[in-house]
């Protein structure tokens, strides 16, 4: 590239770091996206590390799951810290993804050549949401069972493939040991793999799009952008530690012993807007059960949200307004659900 000596460097790792460091990052919006993206990557790394640690003690069976989580919190050194950080980093990841996407819409940053980055970004956000939802089910509380029932019922409403999907999710006709093992497999296997892949694609895209030549509008990735990213990461850790020390993630009793009914169970905050839609809808819409209509609409809506920049190549203001309204509706629904 610019420095011919790099190619002949006998130390390949140093050569790679050098090349990466020599990348030029745009100032302004571009730099902000780099920092936000680095926070997302950092939180994914935190989740992976703490997740591996938690997996050392987790036992995926209906009888043991809750007790094994309690064992981590009570008997394992730093167990409460690891669990709390894993919990808050997951929610932080959702907030970071949401903020990045919202800001991308505001700045119309999804326009060419970044349509692909937008698709990946929505993918990361969606996968993070699934990670948080499946993770919350692992302690097998009453809420886990009800969420497993509701989500598999909703999946069962998807046209054509619904029943197959439901069977795949539960591994049987009702939530039990097999469903729990599947939830763990998805949470700790399939989703992290997909998430890593999506993040990697985003990083490659970003690297491919960086300007080759240093100019007034760019700064080098190392050290200027890298220092900003490490400051952001350190600040993230401080926030995580404060949250973990002062807000203990709740752990309800095992569904095995809980006698409480479905009453008093609330959906997780990031799913609340869907819950609101389901609640507000009449029992049947245009002669079809409304759960089926809404599930289909949600699937189509998410698809459209992820793919619209591929169609709207110019990035029209009208489209931006539509997406903003949709985002505002989701945020509004979430806030309403949180307040109720």
């Amino acid at each position: 590239m610019e420095d011919p000596s790099v190619d002949s460097d006998p130390k390949p790792l140093r050569s790679l770091l050098h090349r990466l460091g020599a990348l030029n990052v745009p100032r302004g919006d571009g730099l902000a996206f780099v920092v936000l993206f680095s926070v997302v990557v950092f939180l994914v790394a935190v989740e992976a590390t703490t997740g591996v640690l938690l997996a050392l003690y987790y036992r995926p069976s209906v009888a043991d799951a809750n007790a094994s989580v309690r064992f981590v919190v009570t008997d394992v050194e730093y167990g409460a810290l690891v669990r709390a950080v894993h919990h808050w980093a997951a929610h932080g990841l959702l907030v970071a993804c949401g903020a990045t996407l919202a800001w991308a819409v505001l700045r119309r940053a999804y326009r060419a050549p970044n349509a692909f980055a937008w698709v990946c970004g929505v993918g990361v956000a969606f996968l993070a949401m699934l990670e948080t939802a499946t993770g919350a089910m692992l302690p097998w509380t009453r809420q886990s069972v009800i969420e497993a029932e509701i989500s598999s019922t909703l999946a069962g409403q998807v046209p054509v493939v619904g029943p197959l999907l439901r069977g795949l999710m539960l591994g049987g006709s009702e939530p039990g040991d097999l469903a729990l093992a599947r939830i763990l497999g998805v949470h700790a296997g399939a989703l992290p793999m997909a998430l890593t892949f999506a993040v990697l694609l985003l990083a490659l895209h970003a690297a491919g799009c960086t300007p080759r030549k240093a100019s007034e509008q760019t700064i080098p990735l190392a050290p200027n952008a890298a220092l900003r990213a490490s400051i952001a990461a350190a600040a993230t850790v401080i926030v995580l530690l404060l949250l973990s020390s002062f807000r203990t993630p709740p752990l309800a009793a095992s569904a095995e012993v809980a006698r409480a009914s479905a009453s008093g169970i609330k959906p997780s905050w990031f799913l609340a807007f869907m819950h609101q839609m389901l609640e507000a809808a009449p029992a049947r819409m245009i002669g079809i059960p409304s759960a089926s209509v809404i599930t289909t609409a949600l699937v189509l809506g998410f698809g459209a949200f992820a793919l619209f920049p591929l169609v709207d190549r110019r990035g029209s203001r009208a489209m931006q307004a539509v997406v903003l309204v949709a985002l505002a509706a989701i945020v509004g629904g979430t806030i309403r659900a949180l307040l109720s």
């Binding site: 640690l53 050392l56 730093y78």
Partner: peptide, 9 residues
């Protein structure tokens, strides 16, 4: 914390 967490309880 990571090492202490992973060591036998």
């Amino acid at each position: 914390p990571a090492l202490r967490f992973a060591s036998p309880p």
